[in-house]
């Protein structure tokens, strides 16, 4: 499959973004837009589910970096879930596990948000 897509599901205060396909320098604007929209709507408890993401480059990682501070300042967080081993490896190479909470399953990320209500 070619291309990239973002879909969104809101449950109570938490918004989950589902990314699929390839997140590279060409497709990052779509992901940035989705995060900007969430911030505008003041929905800052964000889970990014990467179950269907096949590929990420540093341009994609840069989007996470670019929004995390603003979201945390507003009392929210970006948590990640369902990374394939291939995608996790890229996050790991750049030291992301020290800065972001990464979960095997989306429900674990939701539980974590609910614990810190």
């Amino acid at each position: 499959m070619s291309g990239f897509d973002v879909s969104r599901n809101d449950v109570d205060q938490i918004s989950v973004l589902y990314l699929s396909g390839f997140l590279d320098a060409h497709t990052t604007p779509k992901f940035e837009h989705a995060l900007q929209t969430l911030i505008k709507e003041d929905r800052v408890k964000v889970i990014v589910n990467l179950k269907d993401l096949d590929y990420i480059s540093s341009a994609g990682l840069g989007v996470f970096m670019g929004f995390i501070e603003e979201i945390r300042e507003k009392g929210g967080d970006i948590k990640l879930s369902n990374l394939s081993p291939k995608v996790f490896k890229v996050f790991d190479l750049l030291g992301f596990p020290a800065l972001y909470q990464i979960f095997d399953a989306e429900d674990e990320a939701k539980t974590k948000f609910n614990e810190t209500k």
Binding site: S57, E69, L93, L94, L99
Partner: peptide, 13 residues
């Protein structure tokens, strides 16, 4: 993270 600057990540990768 602080400066929302990410150009060097690719070179490190």
């Amino acid at each position: 993270m602080h400066e929302a600057k990410m150009g060097g990540l690719g070179i490190h990768l």
